[in-house]
Design a binder for these strands. Structure first.
Ligand code: FES
Ligand code: FES
Lengths: 157, 157
DNA sequence: AAAATTAGGGACATGAATGTCTTTATTTTA
DNA sequence: TAAAATAAAGACATTCATGTCCCTAATTTT
């Protein structure tokens, strides 16, 4: 009757692949922007180890959302405007990729998550969810970029 | 530049559909077992509002894992043995459905989540993950069944 | 013994997420 | 002006989770 961990399986698809690439790409782009360089799609895909064409799609969404700025042509690429890095929250990146359908998702798949009609897992799940909510809404792109620049965190492997 | 919530989108697929059905089904089966009744597949699918054939698959896995016991024939169905309800943790149900590949999943999709090679989100993500881990490993099937029996929680709609 | 009722299991179908390819548009460089 | 470099966009391909169908096995009821 060995139970043991398994937690990682539960939270396995926390972000979609598209979202993972978007966040990692945004962090890399922001770090390059700090050094005054634009990042090309090819650079990005190499540095975050992601499929190039698929990553391009997510970058287009970030661009349309105004989170990053794209420039065509030689020496073009993607950048994050300096004053934006601290303003952009991780929640905004997720919103840009997964769309703006704001609804309340129940952990056990009920139609809506609500206090009036809670599933059996609701009361235990809610505090964890709120904790995560706090984090994604209060962490800026700049917050995540700084560790990368200092070499303490990584974007691939 | 409206950001606002979006958190629910992030955690959208916390459990797979199969896992959601499995947990909800197990809760219902356990509640029926407390009353001395077996639950048939048809009953279960109706009570948790899930696709019957698909739910059958997940019940087979729970059965093979020894979490529930199945009986064929008239007045057969599924049951949870009384002393088991308090022993079974939610983590075991998830393990039974999603398999036993125990690995460490990084929130940003790096190959492994580790302290030595952390992604930029690691330090913020880890406490939330640990909180959730605590909960799924320490919540028993019985814990979730009691609210259903008392009418305080729900399994559908 | 026959019929009815239940779960088990394999094959197939569908849909969504992921990923690829090709062409077009824009800008810079030569 | 021509060529090269880059992103944008649409069509297509693949994979995987989800879901359905149909037949089989086991048990109980008649
Ligand atoms: S009702 Fe299920 S998590 Fe809130
Ligand atoms: S390395 Fe990314 S969450 Fe731990």
């Amino acid at each position: 009757m060995s139970l043991i961990l398994c937690f990682n399986l539960i939270i396995k698809p926390m972000f979609s692949k598209a979202c993972e690439y978007a966040i990692r790409a945004a962090i890399f782009i922001a770090s390059e922007s700090e050094r005054g360089r634009r990042a090309s799609l090819k650079d990005i895909a190499r540095e975050i180890d992601s499929p190039e064409a698929f990553t391009a799609k997510t970058l287009q969404k970030l661009s349309r959302s105004g989170i990053i700025v794209s420039t065509k042509g030689a020496h073009g690429g993607f950048e994050v405007k300096q004053d934006m890095a601290t303003k952009i929250k991780i929640s905004e990146i997720v919103l840009a990729i997964d769309g703006d359908k704001v609804y309340t998702r129940c952990s056990l798949g009920l139609h809506d998550c609500s206090e009036n009609h809670p599933c059996p897992f609701h009361s235990r799940f809610k505090p964890v969810r709120n904790g995560l909510k706090e984090i994604v809404e209060n962490t800026s792109l700049r917050d995540l970029t700084s560790g990368l620049v200092s070499g303490d965190t990584f974007l691939k492997i």
